[in-house]
Design a protein around this nucleic acid. Structure first.
Lengths: 364, 364
DNA sequence: AAGAAGTTGGAATGCGCTTTCCCAATCAGA
DNA sequence: TCTGATTGGGAAAGCGCATTCCAACTTCTT
């Protein structure tokens, strides 16, 4: 028994399908009150649920918004997803989810799949990559996005524009000032710290990581410090853990070396919170204490990690808002509405806030 | 410029749409090699992307799977979502996401929306509620689910069956032995603890919470302990925090009361990890230490929380698997396949594992 | 009071694709 | 060489809905 159709409802109500359609779905033309009631009643008694696919086909628009993340279980993406979800709800649209592990080739597949489903818009979160191995993937991805936009799709990407993408109409970027914020973090850290700095970064070519590394170095330079060494590992907790082990060894070596007088301590900047937590776990597993033996800071201010002790110094990013903005950017009228300039690509920018806590020796 | 259509491809290839359809999408009939190549080439040169809506309409099946969670940013749901997503990928389907905050009425809306989109199946995660205020919502939800199943939809719910739902064909439940596991946790805890127990639970009527509370009490009883007092608050971090404040006051009072000789310490069981973390944060903010002044245990073993110190005793649940199983249960052939019995509703069961850690004084 | 302007419901068309059903061509068997 | 069985491609009928165009009314206007 398939679900009942508009035609059945119409027949039961003794009207034409056209009329039934008009009353059941917001059409410009409102049929007479009595007829409308009859139709509505018929629909209710049949348990009629409009077929969104058919509606979509007829109107060529689906009420769908595609969300692309690296990993939905990563709290960073989960937070963004929440924002997207909320905004989608406001706009009475549903979100389609795709996870790609961050590979541009996979992302291209996801875009194609969304396009096939005629999603009205697509939100892409997760660091862009410009690594060599991703060159082809990026090219495919941007080609796919181009096509999607040209066919009237809206896309918003969080952070960086897709590598190689041309800025056509319907292409939005929610910019995240990673570099600047990392610089500010470095500056504030440098203000209260005499020791060396070391950066735990993701693989080279991951734009988000690179930006944060670069910004941090700039911040150090402005503060008159020498550049920090950069350790590279995976952009997740285990990457942080590995780097942490490496650093533990160094710290211990340094400690035993200079016998009594402790050398200036190390301050570790991990380019995101989960890496920082991983690194912290590694230090701890090696018997080191934070911030006694080393300070540590992250980036993102992941909610679930706020109860971590010692509280992690980090840069708060309005993750949920980012998701919301990205969604809204793709949301309203197609283009050139009443609002601000809306020709071609649009760029939103959010901001963050340096948040010093115990892990770098801050008071609270 | 709308995306190109099958007909255009067919025209370019000089064949009929029927033939084009047959070669481009897995049909039983395979056209001749030369023709197939021509069609494929035409499709490639046009950048043809099949319109999934139209396909869905024609075949009445969408390749969509709906996922309903309370909150996608909650790590519990995020983990389940990851499992669902993975399984969906295996089945070459896409997931539609809906968040409801746990209200049955909202869940009903979500089911209706999924039904409208003709999702092939629906996975519902998140505790069922049997509170009075949700009575109507539950009734609507189960009616909606019934209809959905009767129309050939597959639904899998995690934990408990939907309150009031009848077990028809296509209705699956992935059972989580909350009660038993909580009992085991209580037993193990009682083995190494002399003091009192207190339970921090969610609102009464939240089935998952209730089960865990009940199981814990049973475990205590079997261990010859008296039943624990139950504090109720919200089923999230802030609920845990509030309860934690309340408990802090009591602990302090008790401590000051019996001057030197410390009274037996309190062991707090929070019915999920985030509540436990909240409670722990509250104790800490009141200057209490764990496990020195009180022990604490949670439930779920949320991944992001594993680096929390002191490490949280908890019950590990295979969250990702749960999502996977639920998805697979709705996945394969409609019913009565080659596998096990498949008439009517089906029930899968996962299991968990008590994991004692530092927060309750365990060695490591 | 008669024609213009505005309503209101219905018939018909099309969205893009799948899937019978049909027909011409090919092949095996006799 | 002819018949019956296959095969391979095309024509056409929907899938369920929105929407344009029409026809039949109703309400104003002068």
């Amino acid at each position: 028994m398939a679900a009942s159709t508009l035609t059945e409802v119409a027949r039961l109500a003794g009207v034409s399908p056209a009329t039934a359609s008009r009353v059941l779905n917001g059409s410009a033309r409102k049929p007479g009150k009595d007829i409308a009631d009859r139709v509505r009643q018929a629909a209710a008694s049949l348990g009629y649920i409009p077929n969104a696919q058919a509606q979509g086909l007829a109107k060529s628009s689906s009420g769908l918004i595609g969300l692309i993340v690296h990993d939905i279980a990563d709290p960073y993406f989960a937070a963004i997803a929440r924002g997207v979800q909320e905004a989608a709800r406001e706009q009475r649209r549903m979100v389609l989810l795709a996870t790609t592990g961050g590979a541009p080739a996979e992302e291209k597949e996801a875009v194609a799949a969304f396009a096939a489903r005629r999603a009205d818009s697509i939100v892409i979160a997760g660091s862009r990559s410009c690594r060599d191995e991703d060159r082809d993937g990026n090219a495919e991805l941007s080609a796919e996005l181009d096509r999607y936009c040209r066919n009237g799709g809206q896309v918003a990407v969080v952070g960086h524009p897709v590598v190689g993408a041309t800025a056509l109409e319907g292409y939005h970027v929610v910019k995240v000032p990673n570099q600047e914020l990392a610089g500010r973090l470095a500056a504030e850290l440098a203000g209260g710290w005499d020791g060396e700095f070391v950066i735990v970064g993701g693989p080279e070519g991951l734009l988000t990581s690179d930006d944060r590394v670069r910004g941090f170095q700039e911040g150090l330079e402005r503060a008159g410090r020498r550049p920090a060494e950069v350790l590279r590992s995976a952009f997740n907790r285990s990457g942080g853990y590995e780097a942490g082990l490496e650093l533990s060894a160094r710290i211990k070596a340094a400690q035993s070396e200079d016998g009594g007088t402790p050398s200036p301590k190390l301050c570790i900047f991990a380019v995101n919170d989960v890496m920082a937590i991983g690194a912290a776990a590694a230090l701890r597993s090696e018997g080191l204490r934070i911030p006694r033996d080393a300070a540590i800071a992250g980036f993102d201010d992941i909610e679930t990690l706020r109860d971590f002790r010692p509280a992690l110094s980090t840069v708060r990013l309005p993750l949920e808002d980012i998701g919301r903005y990205a969604t809204r950017a793709t949301g309203g009228r197609p283009a050139g509405g009443d609002g601000e300039a809306a020709e071609g690509a649009s760029f939103d920018e959010v901001t963050g806030e340096v948040t010093l806590r115990r892990s770098t020796g801050a008071a609270a």
